[in-house]
Amino acid sequence: MGENSQKPDRKLLEILVCPVTKKPLRYDADASELISEAAGLAYPVRDGIPIMLVDEARETPEE
């Protein structure tokens, strides 16, 4: 099905920030995630819908 291949709205991506740090996000199309480097969190994008919830986010290892 590739249900996660749907891209979020371009204009929506422009205004989104990390809800915790209010810092910019990086969209990873392959993983279908919005990555907040400042918070060390990756927010999932499901069916093109960004899920900007901390308890749904994946913790990313420190770089």
Partner: peptide, 8 residues
């Protein structure tokens, strides 16, 4: 179109 916490 998006889900988020109204407080964040």
């Amino acid at each position: 179109g998006i889900e988020f916490d109204e407080e964040l």
